[in-house]
Amino acid sequence: MVERRPWLTLLAHVTLAIGVLMVAFPIWVTFVASTHRPEDIMTAPIPLWPGTQLLANYSELLFSGLKNPSAGGVPLWRMMANSLVMALIIAIGKIVLSFMAAFAIVYFRFPFRMAAFWLIFMTLMLPVEVRIVPTFKVVADLGMLNSYAGLTVPLLASATATFLFRQFFLTVPDELAEAARMDGAGPLRFMKDILLPLSTTNIAALFVIMFTFGWNQYLWPLLMTTDRQYMTVVMGIQRMINVADTDPQWPMVMAAVILAMLPPVAIVVVLQKWFVKGLVETEK
């Protein structure tokens, strides 16, 4: 701050408080709703203070699931486990693949290097939502519907992560690779002994971003999975809300909402420092 202006500081705090409130209020309402009995959430105004059903609701949801036909009695822990598997495979897979690709592009000269670079870059221009029908067809033809492979493999290419690694590798002094070469390290050993440990910050940042990306996938699992065994929690919520003929069981739905956001939010908040760094660096 350049000069002291108490009223400005006060204004800043008030604005930020309102902002935080705006962001947090829906979560509070959701959480409160998830701790009541369904009949408490039938008429307005709904309560704004937590009820007594916290444990009951969450344990029922986690271990037995909803009994309505579209959500089909799949216990939420099962969906959460699917989401976790999917998010982990996507995050780790994207990081590994991008790390290798960026390493090849930065540390080698070979024919079609730029072609490979542009091919990877093109994926930026093709969000899955845009080419959803033909992509679905490819996965179906490969017999990958209703499998973890189908859920994850088509999403493993990442232009963003490749760029981030490439950007970082370019800042690693050339002399480090040369020193390693003099020390008798080949490319793979250099990658493992030097580059990988130096990239931990970037990897942490990418992990947060990619885990969130994977966990929050919606359209893709919606199309890929007809078998309830592979249902993820984010798509499960949609099934819980859009029930035919009756009201959704709001406390349960809201508990599912809370549980569905918990893992990615926790990771973002805990790894905040790296996450912010990584996010801002993808701009460059």
């Binding site: 991008s98 690709a101 592009i105 290097r113 490979a116 093109m122 093709l126 067809k137």
Partner: peptide
């Protein structure tokens, strides 16, 4: 080696991005 390192990313890009597009 560079081709081997690039292969997984490129195969996925070709099969699930370029081909569908």
């Amino acid at each position: 080696l560079p081709y081997a390192l690039l292969a997984p990313q490129l195969v996925i890009t070709a099969v699930f991005f370029v081909w569908p597009a």
